[in-house]
Design a protein around this nucleic acid. Structure first.
Ligand code: SF4
Ligand code: SF4
Lengths: 154, 154
DNA sequence: CCGAAACAGGACCATTCAGGTCTTTAATTA
DNA sequence: TAATTAAAGACCTGAATGGTCCTGTTTCGG
């Protein structure tokens, strides 16, 4: 249905909320803030830590904090970390369709896939923040639409 | 993983291939052309028929043909017919997130979702055809990027 | 008039995978 | 040393998808 996985969605929310706190935050605390069940928060944070989005501090008085500014994280990179690379169809990037049919549409899909991916890459988590609301995202998208050129996939 | 459902992909392929034939084509024939297993082709065609993308002719010497030109079908409309409306997150269009957390990001997601949807709406099946290759899709996307304005969701 | 061909519309199962839980281990601090 | 907290990974479960099949109903050809 062309939907985002829930984990990826949670990851975005958690990162944004984490960015609004200062100092290290424990996963139970983040669970309370976000409303996401705590084990799931912990799981997401582990993935984010492994991919360098957050820094972890173990032991008593430990917790998590952002590894870099929200402005330096793109929506696409978070999604890719949690869910794997964005790939609309099985045949993007030259991979062969498992059904083995060479339908010839792969090239077109590649282009579309790249367009969506680059759009998502151009949106920072900073601009997802509620206080900035939609206007920032909107302007980012419009700016992208006006300037960015899609890399030719095939 | 932000991927298209396989059925939706098949639907696109089938429609494009169907557009390259003339006269009515039976589902077994389409299965042979596309390489997709025949029962699945039949299933997809039934859905497409119900949504008015193809016209069916019953009885002996029956089959399917396009209801309108490939140029008049957008990628988004086909996806929506097969998979349901495009919705990245659970909270697009004002629906409430099932976990009940009001994370405040809904507005931003709405904008992103609309951007992707309108991009896909601007791409016709005609431009997915192999012979026209990526260049047509590319130009369509660039044209869109230069002109289209995202409806403000919230 | 009869039979074959082909769509219509479901019901149905089987697999996959995402979502979520739990346990154990290691590190840090007090 | 004891308490706290993250790290890592195994594991279960349920829903959704993909795929198959069956039973009508329609149309054409003989
Ligand atoms: S080869 Fe064709 S059918 Fe297979 S994933 Fe690519 S577009 Fe879809
Ligand atoms: S309300 Fe927040 S957590 Fe729920 S679907 Fe929307 S963005 Fe995701």
């Amino acid at each position: 249905m062309l939907k985002l996985s829930r984990l990826a969605d949670y990851a975005i929310v958690i990162l944004v909320k984490l960015g609004e706190q200062d100092g290290v935050v424990t996963s139970p605390a983040l669970a309370a803030i976000t409303g996401v069940p705590e084990p799931t928060v912990a799981k997401v944070l582990k993935v984010l830590s492994a991919h360098g989005f957050v820094l972890s501090q173990r032991g008593a008085k430990g917790g998590y904090r952002l590894a870099r500014s929200l402005a330096d994280m793109s929506v696409a990179s978070v999604i890719a970390a949690v869910d794997g690379q964005i790939a609309l169809t099985a045949c993007v990037g030259g991979r062969e369709c498992d059904t083995g049919l060479s339908c010839g549409l792969c090239g077109s899909w590649d282009v579309i896939n790249t367009a969506i991916r680059s759009t998502l890459e151009g949106i920072s988590l900073e601009s997802m923040r509620p206080k900035e609301a939609c206007s920032t995202v909107l302007s980012q998208i419009n700016k992208l639409n006006a300037t960015h050129t899609v890399r030719e996939g095939a």
